[in-house]
Design a protein around this nucleic acid. Sequence first.
DNA 1: ACAGCCATGTAACTTGTTACATGATTTT
DNA 2: AAAATCATGTAACAAGTTACATGGCTGT
Lengths: 176, 176
Amino acid sequence: MLKHALLALLVQQPRHGYELKVAFEKTMGGLWPEINIGQVYTTLSRLERDALVTSHVVDSTGERTDKRVYELTPAGLAALKDWLAQPSESIQIKNEFFVKLALTQIMDLEEAKDLIARQRREYLQAMRILDDLSANPASDANLVSSLLLEGALLYLRAGLEWLDLCDQRIAQQEVK
Amino acid sequence: MLKHALLALLVQQPRHGYELKVAFEKTMGGLWPEINIGQVYTTLSRLERDALVTSHVVDSTGERTDKRVYELTPAGLAALKDWLAQPSESIQIKNEFFVKLALTQIMDLEEAKDLIARQRREYLQAMRILDDLSANPASDANLVSSLLLEGALLYLRAGLEWLDLCDQRIAQQEVK
DNA sequence: ACAGCCATGTAACTTGTTACATGATTTT
DNA sequence: AAAATCATGTAACAAGTTACATGGCTGT
């Protein structure tokens, strides 16, 4: 995923590693938790190996350290377009919580209830963080960053709704 | 993720590779698209390397081929419990479609509209499949498998709602 | 005979991720 | 003087994924 994100960020202009990290985080509207800078460099070297980008060192006269600036190749642009053209996964079954809940089948109901309770706390906490972000948007907020935020909120609400449904069904099961 | 799922499936009883594949797919209520059997074996050998499972060959008298049966170790059970105890990710920003939408910031609006339209088609198609599954549940459907199905539907609806919101906002932007 | 299921595994590769190592410049 | 930011990279490992190779048994 980072691979394609870096390609997309290079469409605008050639950039160096650190710059790409900053641009990526800004693009994600502060919603991406931590991006390890090391990963950016490893990903870039793999992209270069695959000829999707090229690089050259710029001796930044007077500036800090020398920078290695990466540029998109035609093959890189093609790879990006191909990625964008393919629809993304629609069913969230590879979501970790889905899998955990599925696995409670082979454990007991108490386990399931605890799992749900823990996850609800997690969602509520995330909800508070996102609500804060909505109330006090970053100075560089824009159309897309606010859409990302609202998307995240919609998914969180769906998650909470689902947890409620799970609790209800489990309670019904116990009555029987 | 498969690693932990396999550990969970071994809580009930010792099992061999192929059996684990079938049990896993059943547990996921048919919602997991394709599980490559090769991945089960590689994951099992890595689990054994890490002493989370042990295995021994059972000479299945009269039966087909010999089977290698895996058993959970105390360390494996501990690893499973630890995994279950940790809350799963709550913000869906690592969702591929989120990232693609974020990246449209650096591309044009038409690109964003196409992206959204394609994704909507994908969601609607998935919705039809899930609706069919709801209407004609598998013979081995149970509480958890129906919860998984409803969870998947809730997330899909949230996804569609979000796409609608994106379209609205983009249309507003264009009027200005 | 042939397809399909049962059963196991290896080799190779991609992507993600962390920890470590280095050093300059700027701000407090 | 110390902390934060700018800047680059490597080594090693974890996890996901596919393609390939092998062979027995079962039903049509």
